[in-house]
Design a protein around this nucleic acid. Structure first.
Lengths: 197, 197
DNA sequence: GCACTGTGGATAGTGTCGCTCCCCATGCGG
DNA sequence: CCGCATGGGGAGCGACACTATCCACAGTGC
């Protein structure tokens, strides 16, 4: 399809698609000469992913990192999560990993890589919440962690097993784009739980 | 304390504090004449909250709505969650509430207000994820919802019961600032669960 | 009394970001 | 051969969160 059709199909203006091409968020179409290129369904999927990421608050620079990671699929299932971890935008600015966090993981019995970016994000997010007057005691953190295990169990059970490239896509897109779903569910659950209590 | 001391204590430049004062994010200090005002510990807490919100990606306009809500505390415990819901920044742009969402809540047995902003956010967040190729089947959504109940149970058990104003502060600050904590925990839990499976 | 520093108040400027507009040369379709 | 969409690229725009500068003046130290 031509760029105008890609624009129509995705709802993204042509000028913005050109911008994404320049920024490397969208791979070039197959060139059919100097003034014509062909875009595939893959391009359409990519555009939709980029829009969803950007609308979810991911910066263009981070979205480029994410899409670059998707273009270089993992060799094995073992690579999958590690590669996804490093490709994902951090949920909070990184800080040094606190002793509290390492102790929490030990208590939970969680086995994670010692350099996982999420460890730094978690330390920073906890510190930020505390600095704003949210005490976040240990038992609250462990409660959140247990609930996160249930979330993660749903996550991994929905990862396709046949194709590593689509598995990586699912993990990365799912992690980023389901976060707001969980946030909305949490607010609704608060309302439900508090009206019941 | 004077504005320079407030700046030093919070780590926020004086020029930025003046900006927050202009924008209504920070109430004026008690005036001690034309060129002097006194700022209290409440102001310091407010500055730290505003910084945490802004650092978490909340816009200044939304942060003003949040802080205005905090300045007008609820009359009763019954008001608390409702007021917090409307004061909180939405986790995703609002869309019309989908039939799927109303059906999901019915299946879950959740009782929530029919105009809760989180319903609109949830519908929009689900649609955004789907458009990016995350299928999000019903059983996944119910799984996420059950886990969100556990999160919400921790949330409400940590709300102070003595003072309605501080309860509202805790709910609002906790909801926004714990979201990134949960996101980081989710990533770590994914790594743990997938390495175990 | 007097210089000096810090303050409240206000306006204008800065840097970043995500587009968006415009221009050009080209080459396919009619 | 003409019109027009395309690929390519530079420059501009609007929003946003500050940040810099200026001003008049009130305390403070001397």
């Amino acid at each position: 399809m031509r760029i105008s059709e890609l624009s129509e199909a995705s709802g993204v203006p042509v000028a913005t698609l050109k911008y994404y091409l320049r920024e490397g968020l969208l791979p070039p179409g197959e060139s059919l000469g100097a003034t014509r290129a062909d875009y595939s369904e893959d391009h359409l999927r990519r555009v939709r992913l980029v829009r969803a990421l950007v609308d979810a608050g991911v910066s263009v620079a981070e979205a480029r990192r994410v899409t670059e990671a998707l273009d270089d699929p993992p060799r094995s299932r073992h690579d999958l999560l590690g590669r996804a971890q490093y490709a994902l935008p951090a949920p909070h600015a990184a800080t040094p990993v606190s002793d509290e966090v390492t102790g929490l993981l030990a208590d939970l019995g969680w086995v994670v890589g010692p350099d996982s970016p999420a460890l730094h994000s978690l330390s920073g997010a906890i510190a930020a919440a505390r600095s704003a007057g949210v005490p976040l005691p240990t038992d609250a953190l462990t409660g959140y962690a247990r609930a996160s295990e249930a979330v993660a169990a749903v996550d991994v059970s929905n990862v396709p097993t046949d194709d590593l490239a689509s598995a990586l896509h699912r993990v990365v897109a799912g992690t980023v784009l389901v976060d707001p779903v969980l946030a909305a569910l949490r607010r609704l659950a608060q309302e439900h739980v508090s009206s019941r209590g």
